[in-house]
Design a protein around this nucleic acid. Structure first.
Lengths: 341, 341
DNA sequence: TAATGTTAGTAAAACGTTTTACTAAATCGA
DNA sequence: TCGATTTAGTAAAACGTTTTACTAACATTA
């Protein structure tokens, strides 16, 4: 019962060419009477062109791929929502591919998506510390054939457009806030060491300390993996080392840190101040709302889409890396250290 | 530089037919020598068939659609993750479509996805109270042409397969738990009135009360919309009416209820016991971990995929509606009422 | 009236596969 | 040695569009 362009043409007594021209709004010399008739018939049958036939000749799919490390993570879920909104508004569909933070899957997902036909790609890379695999990935991406943009993360050495929050500036703002409250023994819970976002945020932390004349102490850095549990165990380590404040590289690990503090009968912020990074929805509804670095996820999604869209519509556009401003949101999880209240 | 089946055929000195037969593992009479040569050449060029050309003739896309009301909601995000995992494992891609809980968008998303070519569809319906639109939607779905399954929710009157938790049983378990603690003045915060999940969960609440001989009091039911804020305002209403316990139809509204309780200087569970529904990850890491009805989201996704997959592979399968067992998770947000400790 | 322009279209190739129905050559059985 | 069978393939149609290059009929101009 699906109607083809041929059915429309037959009923309108014209050629398929004419129908195609009219329905696609292409420049033509068809009389208004005929055009109207065609449009009417098309509407009557609810005609929609066959996606494959169109794709076969135009090589366009009006589909993009979105590769994410973990769609169950609120940060990425909101990112997906944002990107999906812009896609839909521009007449694109979005194929989602979740990699479970497995860098190997980044590779297969890219290959799969490109082979199945997408016009462009937005990738939030999994955190990869394997240099060899990264190099192979870069080689793959370098002659991918479709435009793509990096979102949130990035791979060292990759030439491409992208957008992320200014990670290091965010790390610096978080740390500066603790310093300005009077803390000097400040711990840092990082993301997976060697990964782009983790290293950038750590760099901000170190920069802030150095600038304030506080000597950087490596033993006050504990690596996590951006998950709740790792935040908890890292916080235990840091509390053992006597910190009065902790900068956690994301909110989820900050929640873990809360738990560590509380499980010792201590209190946030009285005994330990905590700053997070991301500003997830939940950070504001915790019993002790979390001081954190806010990133505008909708803006992140929009910028990624804009960068991709430009490259979808015109080729030969130069690479561009945009960094969004972080914002410090001060809530109740930070306070001056005990001696200085 | 993209190679076609013709390139492979030319280099192997055979016809495209032969190449197609071999590469697709179709029954054939080609010698092992030739087959090997073809496979080698294909591998050398990293050949992948053009998705459109294949789709044009086979009418299969190996793509399914997933329509969700709100991907930013942890519950749906985890659902998407689960479904994506099964899709990928079976060689399918998943197009995600987010409707922002706008039932109008359910309609357009379905049309769009089907026109662009999908083999099947999984839909978590938006909460719709408009009977006319629902009827139109049912009509659309009734001759959709591709198999689809309803996930989590459902539309009254629709004939289709689907899977959800046993909503009413869940509501009943939550309420029974409060009753067994000794509560008799129990409030209920519902989802959007008229929507399927909301009414089912409410039905469980009423059923439990009735069974326990507690007269149902309509003034102890406050409607929410499954969002945090609505939970808070509904809880205020209920506290005004003197409830000692609240069953919130989802965890997010339960969090809102926490906030309402605390903003009055009261305490959960000492002054008000609260039960949620969903068992989101965050419910367990709250300072007062939430007693709630657990739904196994991975299982939900898996069942939805299984139902769809069966209908993708064989046609004429009868409709089937599966209901998953809810589980009561008792944490710290519920306790006996003041007089009875 | 012959050339030119305009109007309203159209024919056919191309996109890259899958699939059905065919065939030529070699082998076999009696 | 001849018909039948097996082996190893192939030719061509079909899928439903888009797009390029054409054309027939009529009107206008000089």
């Amino acid at each position: 019962m699906k109607h083809t362009i041929r059915d429309i043409a037959r009923e309108a007594n014209v050629s398929v060419t004419t129908v195609s021209l009219i329905l696609n709004g292409k420049p033509n010399t068809v009389s208004e009477a005929t055009a109207g008739r065609i449009r009417e018939i098309a509407a009557k049958y609810n005609y929609a062109p066959n996606h494959f036939a169109v794709g076969l000749v135009t090589k366009k799919t009006n589909t993009i791929g979105l590769i994410l490390p973990d769609i169950a993570n609120t940060f990425f879920a909101e990112l997906a929502k944002s990107v999906d909104g812009f896609c839909t508004a521009s007449g694109y569909s979005m194929i989602l591919s979740n990699t479970n933070n497995d860098p190997e899957k980044d590779l297969t997902a890219v290959t799969l998506l490109v082979n199945r036909g997408i016009d462009g790609l937005i990738i939030a890379f999994s955190q990869d510390e394997n240099k060899e695999r990264s190099a192979a990935f870069i080689a793959l991406l370098d002659d991918l054939g479709v435009p793509f943009v990096a979102l949130d993360s990035w791979i060292e050495g990759l030439k491409c457009s992208g957008v992320s929050i200014h990670h290091s500036k965010g790390g610096m703002m978080a740390t500066n806030h603790l310093i300005s409250l009077g803390h000097t023994r400040i711990g840092c819970i990082t993301g997976p060491r060697g990964s782009y976002t983790a290293e950038r945020r750590l760099k901000g932390y170190i920069g802030a300390l150095t600038e304030a004349g506080i000597p950087f102490d490596e033993t006050l850095v504990a690596a996590g993996d951006y998950q709740f549990d790792s935040g908890s165990s890292a916080a235990h380590l840091l509390i053992d080392r006597g910190v009065t404040a902790i900068f956690a590289s994301n909110d989820l690990m900050a929640y873990g840190a809360y738990q560590a503090v509380q499980s010792r009968g201590l209190n946030v912020p009285d005994d330990v101040s905590i700053v997070g990074f991301d500003d997830l929805f939940f950070s504001n509804i915790l019993q002790t709302p979390l001081t954190t670095i806010h990133q505008s996820v909708p803006a992140l999604g929009q910028e990624a889409w804009n960068l991709l869209y430009d490259r979808l519509k015109h080729d030969g556009i130069d690479d561009e890396y945009r960094q969004l401003e972080p914002h410090l949101i001060i809530r109740d999880s930070t306070i001056a250290p005990k001696g200085r209240r």
